[in-house]
């Protein structure tokens, strides 16, 4: 029942290998990756232009910068965001602390759990 079908996800992650792992996990979980950004300016551009995803997983620290400007754009578009970070929730600024967080290194089960609400939404809607 947790098969989300064609639910769409956007990913921001600046490290190639960590991205591979996440891509593999997401594809194993049946998500369609509609956009991948590895650098900040690309993340902002994608946040504005990508076909509206159902959820986005955002690495917080992108090449020494922070992903929040892109997160802001997504939230304004009504896209729920999930942060991936080595710091945990405490590493987030107060205005973002109410968001879902997966702590690096995360497992497939962690990703599945955090995306569960958006997968279930698919079933309810579908």
């Amino acid at each position: 029942m947790s098969e989300p079908g064609s639910r769409r996800i956007l990913v921001v992650e600046d490290e190639t290998l960590v991205l591979f792992n996440l891509e593999d996990i997401l594809s194993d979980l049946g998500w369609e990756i509609v956009g991948v950004a590895m650098r900040l300016e690309e993340a902002r551009r994608l946040a504005e232009t990508a076909v509206r995803p159902d959820v986005a997983i955002l690495d917080v620290n992108i090449g020494g910068g922070l992903v929040f400007p892109a997160a802001e754009i997504l939230v304004q578009r009504g896209v729920p965001v999930v942060f991936a970070t080595g710091y945990g929730r405490d590493g987030l600024p107060p205005e973002w602390q109410d968001r879902e967080v997966i702590v690096k290194p995360y497992t497939q089960a962690d990703v599945e759990r955090v995306l569960q609400p958006y997968s279930q939404q698919a079933c309810a809607a579908g």
């Binding site: 490290e15 290998l17 960590v18 591979f20 792992n21 593999d24 620290n61 970070t85 080595g86 710091y87 590493g91 702590v103 690096k104 290194p105 995360y106």
Partner: peptide
């Protein structure tokens, strides 16, 4: 210390990925 923590966690995530890619 925050930066070290960030690096360690990222490195662990990288190693995790290397393992998963190597054995996949």
């Amino acid at each position: 210390i925050d930066e070290l923590n960030h690096r360690v966690k990222n490195t662990l995530a990288t190693v995790q990925s290397i393992a998963s890619q190597s054995f996949r």
